[in-house]
Design a protein around this nucleic acid. Structure first.
Lengths: 223, 223
DNA sequence: CTTCAACGATCAATATTTTCATTTTCTTCG
DNA sequence: CGAAGAAAATGAAAATATTGATCGTTGAAG
């Protein structure tokens, strides 16, 4: 999960970054309008946290730009101004949520989760990718109409790869997300290889495949 | 929830134990200074009921020892002497409450509850996590607005996991905390598995799940 | 006092997850 | 291109976890 923080106050930025990295998001930051536009132009983010009051431009302009480009990154407006008017303007321009400062990090996390959930799974429990259909409620997976059963780890890996769709997932990120933060960095990644092998075997009829990226991690390939 | 009674009068001890076990606490006891120090050194308690007048040492010394060790168990001083001076001394040394003898068991229960609440859940009688709502007063659990009933062990396990939220709980710690000090290290953990299974079944509609960490223990997963 | 249901422990059969030894694949560099 | 070394894949074994069945206890209801 990749998040862009657009925020000019350094301290605020650091707080947010730290909190989000704790939650295992990949965090990038832009501290002004120009840098934000560049990043957005080049990368896709799952969620953009957008401060309205930037030194060199209006955050709302960025939002307009996003939509004009047809990007559909999630956007949460973070603003010191909490006038109803601003709020409405932001949501009108297609923001997903509006969070007035000051706020608790827990609140931010909750909003982000909500946005990610809405976007990744359209609010419903069915996820379809290639010929793979997943009911996230019952954890039932169908490949070409045939039901297959994944165990906990396999399911968790698959969902993480899907959440990051075409993006590259490092082995460290995968380990942290699926196994937790107690894993030893000096460990070998044998346990990942093993699970990936089983997952692949169960998914051999699928049009999506788990591809290794040598020296880095894995990546979902569609078709 | 685990409570240590430090008390030398056998009858008093039995009364307290019975009353507390009725309230579904895990109760352990020490009848002298030495035994109390040992227990405190080895285990963590949610609350310690400390009699001041011990045959082989001053209860207040125990309190000092606790603080020096950096332990933050809750402490309620139970004493026959009700001089203002003693009371102040005790609270000064970091006790959470002071209960003069004689007292009604109901009074003791109320004080314990207050201490536990203050320490574990910031004074809130309601604990909310994911779609799970717990009234620690009545031990009623609601999952997605549906009432469910947990028995003693299940409740105890859940609360311990929640108290440790995202942190990892080893099986030994869990056993020690929920079952008390009579567990044998050479034992299998079958009795834990059994309870975890039941707890999971009752919580299958919850957005929080109990995840096993291979070879170590369990961990609460939110969402 | 008896009966019955819930509780909690134990055991055995399965299933999952990790580990290990080995083989294969990939990248680099001469 | 071809060899060497690093990374990844594989198969099988070992370790651990899950589950369902069973059974003695306990406590509540009648």
């Amino acid at each position: 999960m990749k998040i862009l923080i657009v925020e000019d106050e350094q301290e605020m930025l650091n707080n947010m970054r730290q909190s989000l990295e704790q939650e295992l998001y990949i965090v990038e930051a832009a501290s002004n309008f120009k840098s934000a536009t560049e990043k957005i132009g080049v990368y896709d983010y799952d969620c953009i946290l957008l401060d309205i009051g930037l030194p060199d431009g209006d955050g709302l302009e960025l939002l307009k730009y996003l939509k004009k480009q047809g990007k559909d990154d999630g956007v949460i407006i973070v603003s010191a101004k909490d006038s109803l008017d601003d709020r409405l303007k932001g949501l009108d321009l297609g923001a997903d949520d509006y969070l007035p400062k000051p706020f608790h990090m827990a609140e931010l996390n909750a909003r982000i989760k909500a946005v990610l959930r809405r976007r990744n799974f359209d609010g419903n429990t069915l996820v379809e990718i290639g010929n793979v259909l997943i009911d996230t409620e019952s954890r039932i997976i169908k490949i070409a109409d045939e039901k297959i059963i994944l165990n906990r780890k396999e399911y968790s890996i698959l969902m993480y790869l899907i959440a990051n769709k075409t993006r590259l997932v490092t082995k460290t990120a995968l380990a942290e997300h699926v196994w937790g933060d107690h894993i030893d960095q000096t460990d070998s990644f044998d346990f990942i290889y093993s699970q990936i092998k089983n997952l692949r075997k169960k998914m051999d009829k699928a049009t999506i495949t788990v591809e290794a990226v040598y020296g880095v991690g894995y990546k979902l390939e569609v078709e």
